[in-house]
């Protein structure tokens, strides 16, 4: 297996979740707690406030596995989560950050 196809494989096995959430202390704990209690690792996390700062956007980079659908449903149930969108691993939000992790 050459390097390119390995990277492709990894790309296929990942997903990016985009969450609109209320911005207050504890929201992040609620979200990541759902993953950690299932021993489901979150590979990457990005959060910034949006608009007037009452809301935030969370980006999660996770491994795609059979549990992901259930994870999304659980995240949607959280009171402070307003919306969840699911993207492929090719989403640029984490790609652009790579230079900070070299």
């Amino acid at each position: 297996m050459n390097a390119t196809s390995q990277a492709e494989n990894q790309a296929l096995a990942r997903a990016v979740l985009e969450l609109d959430v209320n911005n207050h202390a504890g929201v992040m704990s609620h979200v990541v707690g759902l993953f950690s209690r299932r021993a489901y690792n979150v590979e990457g996390i990005l959060v910034m406030p949006v608009g007037d700062g009452t809301k935030s956007r969370i980006w999660l980079l996770v491994n795609e596995d059979a549990r992901l659908e259930q994870m999304v449903k659980q995240v949607e149930k959280l009171e402070d989560v307003l919306a969840v969108r699911r993207h492929g691993a090719d989403h640029r939000v984490f790609e652009r950050l790579e230079e900070f992790f070299r």
């Binding site: 504890g26 707690g33 009171e79």
Partner: peptide, 14 residues
């Protein structure tokens, strides 16, 4: 208390 009750409540408030 807030942290302890995150996984065992529907929702919690401080």
């Amino acid at each position: 208390t807030y942290g302890l009750t995150i996984p065992i409540t529907k929702h919690n408030f401080l």
